[in-house]
């Protein structure tokens, strides 16, 4: 199994998706809840997700696909940090607390998403890592930065897919901002700013508003305008970035 296959599967099954996910019957709704409990998910989270299911009958096909996509990214992040922490002599003692905290969150995200998806959860793919990932700390950190910034952009890019699944949207947003905290910290360890200035952003326009002519911004650099808005990535763009990790 690889990322591309998961995604193409999801896209191809669109017509039958309601049938394919008909496990969200009443019986499986209960199973969904028990999965969350088994995964150690606090009842309040399980409750809110189940409430959303109860209200809508089932999560939309778009929401299921988004959660599967998210789980695959979380699998990668989770394994990456666990391998990094296990690699002898890789992470300096001074940075261990930071990396361990990130790793803890990624493991929690995997458990949360697996629990939420139940039988619809894809298996963990086999990942591969570029040479030096776990022997050079610089390479490890650079990879961490890429994964975190991509994770932020990936969740952001899928938010619209969840607009009709309110409880799932909220949960996704709560993961999204944690990835952003991670990204900021990893960037700062690398000696970078915690925020992203994407040189590809040349329009300086958001939501139809021309940023550079806004009042009270005289003297602000292009970087400030770019950094103030984190840009999303489409699924396809995320997959292209994830490609080197696919086994």
């Amino acid at each position: 199994m690889n990322l591309f296959k998961i995604i193409s599967d999801i896209e191809q099954i669109d017509p039958e998706v309601s049938e394919r996910y008909s496990f969200y019957s009443r019986r499986n709704l209960l199973k969904f809840g028990s999965n969350l409990v088994a995964a150690g998910i606090p009842a309040i989270v399980a409750g809110s997700l189940n409430k959303a299911l109860a209200q809508s009958g089932a999560p939309s096909a778009a929401a299921v696909a988004t959660l599967q996509f998210a789980l695959t990214l979380e699998y990668l992040e989770d394994e990456f940090y666990r391998m990094g922490l296990a690699a002898s002599g890789l992470i300096p003692a001074a940075d261990t607390k930071v990396i361990a905290q990130i790793s803890k969150h990624e493991a929690a995200h995997v458990a949360l998403l697996k629990g939420a998806l139940g039988t619809a959860a894809p298996a963990k793919p086999t990942f591969k890592y570029p040479t030096g990932t776990f022997t050079s700390y610089a390479t490890f950190l650079a990879t961490a930065r890429a994964l975190e910034d991509t994770g932020v952009a990936a969740y952001k890019g899928q938010a619209g897919e969840l607009i009709n699944d309110k409880a799932i949207l909220t949960t996704a947003l709560q993961i999204h901002s944690v990835e952003a905290r991670h990204a900021s910290e990893v960037r700062r360890i690398l000696g970078l700013k915690g925020w992203v200035s994407d040189p590809a952003q040349t329009t300086f326009t958001q939501g139809g508003v021309a940023l550079k002519t806004l009042p009270n911004t005289t003297g602000f650099t292009d970087d400030s305008f770019r950094e103030a808005f984190d840009e999303p990535l489409t699924k396809a763009a995320v997959l292209a970035i994830a490609a080197p990790f696919l086994g």
Binding site: V152, K156, G160, I163, L173, A180, A228, P232
Partner: peptide, 23 residues
């Protein structure tokens, strides 16, 4: 959905700030 996208673009910047300040 367009407003949701804009809120998404801003919230992660706030989260980046939060992490930096906490650091």
């Amino acid at each position: 959905v367009n407003y949701l996208a804009l809120a998404g673009k801003i919230v992660s910047v706030e989260a980046r700030h939060a992490a930096a300040i906490r650091d």
